[in-house]
């Protein structure tokens, strides 16, 4: 087992490095350092002066790890690979440097974004798991019943619906129309961040938190539940047609006991693996949800870094999210081996 884990980790390192190199070269070669001027707030005369002096001009960018980029930043035209090596050697020493555009410490931005995303993931996964298991078991136990058809249909809808659309509809209905329906002048559910800044005391703050979380968590949950409940349903069906379950039923064990004691436990194994795989992808995958609900998480951070063409900030982002994918992939494999004694990892 340990050898397996070590080998998997060792294997993922070159993959990560290659990914970072590709992203570095690509973003470096193609990003638009003046992207923020594409909209109306155009160049001031000062910015034009800076332009004319060449400070924004590609590929005039240098990796500055100590201080924010400013006018006085020297403009070296080092080869891309050299710059990449410069970045990598610092990164390996734990120095992520400062953002090109905002001048802030990349690690600080990552930390705060990660905290927000983690909250979404924890609540989203908890709720999704509960819902999917219930739906999956119900659908499998009552196969071809009306609820089964309804849930099957809903899961198709969930998988066929763009996340952003669901989010917008949720805001339209529950942030706006619900309030006017109830004739109140405040939103019942929020679509702005994770907290209000004025909630004081434990219970008001908890309620405030719940009202902020409800819609984004619902949005990210829909697709997850749609797919997880299908897994749970089919693995439940697989298990229930297995010989030992038939034997248990034939022995006269109560159906409830058979389902929950025997079938569900075994049917959870494949689901848990899939869950682990999916959760790994969520750390960098909540781009749309975070964007719509103005939550400053990893996805939103990615969008703004990308818009700014900020390689310095993008690369650590990429590494962090990729590490989570790799870790959770590994976790999925390990879980599989631990939960199912028939599988031996080698």
């Amino acid at each position: 087992m340990l050898t397996f884990i070590v080998r998997r980790i060792a294997y993922s390192i070159p993959v990560l490095l290659l990914a970072s190199l590709l992203v570095f070269v690509f973003v470096h070669a193609t990003s638009d350092p003046l992207a923020k001027y594409a909209q109306s707030r155009d160049l001031t005369l000062k910015a034009r002066q800076g332009l004319a002096q060449g400070i924004y001009q590609q590929p005039c960018r240098e990796f500055v790890t100590g201080s924010p980029p400013t006018k006085a930043m020297t403009c070296t035209k080092a080869p891309v690979l050299k710059q990449y090596w410069y970045w990598l050697s610092h990164f390996l020493k734990g120095k992520m440097g400062n953002s090109f555009v905002t001048g802030r410490a990349v690690s600080a931005d990552l930390r705060s974004s990660f905290g927000n995303t983690l909250q979404l993931i924890i609540w989203g996964v908890l709720i999704s798991a509960l819902l999917s298991i219930s739906i999956g078991v119900l659908s499998a136990v009552r196969q071809y019943s009306l609820p089964d058809y309804i849930f099957t249909g809903l899961s198709f809808v969930g998988l066929s619906m763009p996340t952003f659309w669901f989010g917008l509809i949720a805001i339209d209905l529950f942030s706006n129309r619900l309030s006017s329906l109830l004739h109140v002048h405040y939103p019942i559910f929020f679509s702005l961040g994770l907290h209000s800044s004025h909630a004081r005391g434990f219970f008001p703050a908890a309620l405030d938190y719940a009202r902020h979380l409800a819609l984004p968590v619902a949005t990210l949950t829909v697709q997850i539940v749609a797919s997880w409940s299908r897994y749970e349903r089919s693995s439940m069906l697989d298990v229930m047609s297995a010989d030992y379950i038939r034997t248990a039923t034939a022995k006269g064990l109560p159906r409830r006991k058979v389902i929950f004691r025997h079938a569900l436990r075994n049917a959870l194994i494949p689901l848990v693996t899939v869950m682990a795989l999916d959760i790994g992808g969520l750390f960098g995958g909540l781009v749309v949800t975070e964007q719509i609900f103005s939550i400053h998480g990893m996805g939103a951070l990615f969008l703004s870094d990308l818009g700014n063409g900020d390689t310095q900030a993008l690369l650590p982002w990429l590494m962090v999210t990729a590490v989570f994918v790799v870790l959770f992939n590994l976790l999925a494999d390990v879980l599989y081996g631990v939960l199912d004694p028939r599988i031996r990892l080698s």
């Binding site: 993959v15 990560l16 990914a19 193609t30 638009d32 995958g285 990308l306 990729a322 994918v325 790799v326």
Partner: peptide, 19 residues
């Protein structure tokens, strides 16, 4: 493997923005 590590949306967004 590379593309399993990086979310698809991210890959495409980087490529789209760049090209």
């Amino acid at each position: 493997d590379l593309f399993l590590v990086v979310p698809a949306l991210v890959v495409i967004a980087v490529a789209q923005q760049g090209l």
